[in-house]
Design a protein around this nucleic acid. Structure first.
Lengths: 345, 345
DNA sequence: GTGAAAGCGCTAACAT
DNA sequence: ATGTTAGCGCTTTCAC
C-alpha cells in the first residue's frame, strides 16, 4: 500500500553487493575522503540516479540531530507585509537547502507560545519569529538558544535575542515632521494593536517630533487597538467626534489608513483638504488610492533576508567560543511623498 | 552543548524504574488498553508533565512512517490572494495536529517540480498544491497518490487529482455580461500569465458571453503575459495604441487592474467615463481606489478550507477499498458592483 | 500488568 | 578501499 516502495541504503547495498556504509559514503560525497574506488562509486551513483534515490531525511535527522528545517512563526501571513517577509525567508532558506515549517500565530500570544514549543519539539535547526510583540517573557526564556533564534519586525532589543527590524522610531518621527512642516498641529495617531512594540516605538517617534517642535502632546489623539481596516474605520469615527479639530492622521498601518479613508468619506471630510493622512508600510496599491497616499516605507524583503543571514551566521558558529556581539539590526525607512498631505496656510 | 538535554523514553524509564514500553504506552494514551496500573500510569504522566516531555516526532516519524506534516506548495505567497489560501490552510491543519512545510514556487515550474519532489522526500503525509498552472504532466505522474494530494486554484480537472477552485468560467462570463449589459462592445481582456489554467478558463467565459450576445470575438483584444502591476501597465499602453476604440477592460487580477489604471491616467483616459474596468480577486483596498473598482470576488479562505477538508477526508480513507468518486469542487464567485463601470448610452 | 528485543533508515567509530 | 556494529528515539510483537 505504501505509494512508493521506499528504497533505502540497505536495499541498494544488497542489490549492488556492497555495504551500507559504502553507499552512504558515496551518496554523501565522501567517496574521495574514504578512497572508494572509481567503479564502486560510479555504480552506486548511477544506480541511485536511476532509481531517483535520496536518503531519507527523517532517518538522517534522527541520527544527525539535524533536520534541515527552519521554524517560522509569523503573526499573520495574510497581512501582505508579513507575507513578503515570509516569502523572502522561504526563498533564501531554500537556497541553503533548508525547508520552512510555517506557523501563523494569528496575532495571538497563546498560539505564538505553543508554536514555538511545537517547533522546538519538531527539532527545527533554527527559528525566525515575528512575534505578536506585546510580551517578551516567553521569548526571553530562549535566550540560551539565542544562536538559533532571530526575531523579526516586532523585536525586543533587551532580551538577548538577535533581531532585525525597521527603524520605527525614525519612521514615526519622519512622518510627524513632514506633517509639522506642512503646518499641522493637531495630529492624531491610529496606533494599531495596543502594546505592540513597533507601534510603541513609532509613537515615541511621533512624540519626539511633536516635542522638538514645541507642540503639546495630547494623549487623546492616540487611539486604536488593532491593525485592520475595521479598526481604522471605528477609531477614526470616534476621533472625529471627540477631537473634531484634527487636521492630520498618522495611520500606523495601511489597512488602518483604508479604514480612516472610509470613515472620513462618510463624515464628508475631504482628504487632504480637510484632513491629511500618512500611512505606514508602502504597498503598490497606495499610489492608486484617492488621493495617492504619502507613506513611510519599510522593506519587508530586506528584513526577511537579513533575518536569514543572521540566523545562518549564528548557526554556523554555534559552537564557537566567544559570545558573538549582540546582533541587532535596524533597517532604514523612507518617506514616500504623494498627495495625501495638505499644506496648511 | 545541546541546548535542551533532550529527554527520552529511555531516560524516563530509567529514572522511574519501568520499561520504555510502559512509558511509551502510557504517553500514547494506551494505558487502559494494556491495563497498566493506575499508579504506574500516574507516576509516568506526572513526571512527563513536570519535565515537559513530548516524544520526539522525528523518531516517531521514522518508526511510524507518518510525520504529521502537510506539504504546501504555493505559486507566490507574497500575492495576497495566495497568502489568504495559505493562511487558512495553516490554521485548519494546525487544528488537526499537522504542521505545514511551506514551499513557494515563485510562479516557476521548475521550482514547483523540485518542491514536490522535496516534500515527498521529506515524507509529508499529504500535500496541497497551488500550481503555476501552465503544465500538468508532472502532476499527473502523482495520480497514484491522489488520495494524498489536492490541487488548489489552478487546477486540472482531468488528471485524476482531487481539486478545489473557483468557478472561473462563470467569473469571466459574469463580468463580461455586466459590461455587455452596460452597452460595451469593444471589451479588452488583460489575461495575466499566458497559459495559466485559471486565465484560460476565465477567457473562455469572456468569449462565451460575447458569443451569446452576438458580439464578434477579436483576439487582438486579449493581451498580457503576467499577473503583476507592471504587466498591466505595459499591456494597457499597448492596447491603447493598437485598439484605441476599446471602452472597457476586464483585468484578470487586481494587480493588473492597478497597472491599467496607471496607464489610463497617463494617457488621459478617464475611468469609467472613457474606459470601464472590472478586476478579479476582490481585496479591501479596491473599494478605496479612484474609482472604487467593480470586481469578481472569490473566497481564498473558503478554497483553502475546502482543500484541507478534502485532503483529510481522503487521507482518512487512504486504505479503504473503492475508489472514492472524483472529488472536484468549484466554489461560486460573485460580482461586486462598485463604480468603475460606465453605462454607455 | 509489564518487559525484552527487533527494527524504522541512517551515519560514524572502529575495525580490517 | 570496504565492512561490522552500535545507536539516534520510538513503537510493537511476542513473551511472561
Amino acid at each position: 500500500m505504501s505509494p512508493r516502495p521506499q528504497n533505502s541504503l540497505k536495499r541498494i547495498s544488497a542489490k549492488l553487493g556492497v555495504s551500507m556504509t559504502t553507499v552512504s559514503r558515496v551518496l554523501s560525497g565522501q567517496a574521495g575522503k574514504y578512497r572508494i574506488s572509481e567503479e564502486t562509486a560510479k555504480a552506486i551513483l548511477d544506480y541511485a540516479r536511476k532509481e531517483n534515490f535520496t536518503p531519507n531525511p527523517i532517518a538522517k535527522g534522527l541520527r544527525l540531530r539535524k533536520t534541515n528545517t527552519i521554524g517560522l512563526v509569523i503573526a499573520d501571513v495574510s497581512n501582505p507585509f508579513f507575507a513578503s517577509i515570509a516569502s523572502e525567508i522561504t526563498h533564501t532558506t531554500r537556497d541553503h537547502g533548508y525547508s520552512i515549517i510555517l506557523c501563523d500565530s494569528q496575532e495571538n500570544l497563546a498560539i505564538e507560545k505553543q508554536s514555538i514549543e511545537l517547533l522546538w519539539n519538531r527539532q527545527v535547526d533554527g527559528m525566525i519569529i515575528c512575534p505578536v510583540g506585546q510580551s517578551s517573557e516567553h521569548l526571553a526564556r530562549y535566550a540560551d538558544e539565542r544562536r538559533r533564534i532571530v526575531l523579526v519586525d516586532r523585536v525586543f532589543p533587551d532580551i538577548g535575542l538577535p533581531y532585525v527590524s525597521s527603524d520605527n522610531f525614525s519612521g514615526g518621527k519622519l512622518a510627524t515632521e513632514h506633517l509639522l512642516d506642512h503646518g499641522h498641529r493637531r495630529i492624531a495617531c491610529l496606533q494599531g494593536l495596543r502594546g505592540t512594540i513597533t507601534s510603541q516605538t513609532r509613537v515615541k517617534g511621533y512624540e519626539a517630533a511633536l516635542t522638538a517642535c514645541g507642540v503639546p502632546f495630547d494623549p487623546a489623539l492616540i487611539v486604536g487597538d488593532s491593525f485592520d481596516e475595521q479598526g481604522g474605520y471605528l477609531d477614526t469615527k470616534l476621533l472625529l467626534s471627540t477631537s473634531p479639530d484634527i487636521t492630520a492622521i498618522l495611520a500606523l498601518s495601511n489597512l488602518l489608513a483604508l479604514g480612516a479613508l472610509r470613515a472620513l468619506a462618510e463624515e464628508k471630510r475631504r482628504v487632504p483638504e480637510d484632513v491629511s493622512i500618512i500611512a505606514f508600510d508602502d504597498q503598490p496599491f497606495l499610489a492608486h488610492l484617492s488621493p495617492p497616499l504619502t507613506t513611510v516605507a519599510q522593506s519587508a524583503r530586506a528584513m526577511g533576508g537579513a533575518a536569514v543571514k543572521i540566523l545562518f551566521e549564528r548557526m554556523r558558529v554555534a559552537d564557537a567560543a566567544g559570545d558573538a556581539n549582540k546582533a541587532g539590526l535596524l533597517l532604514p525607512v523612507s518617506l514616500i511623498t504623494r498627495k495625501s498631505v495638505h499644506q496648511l496656510s
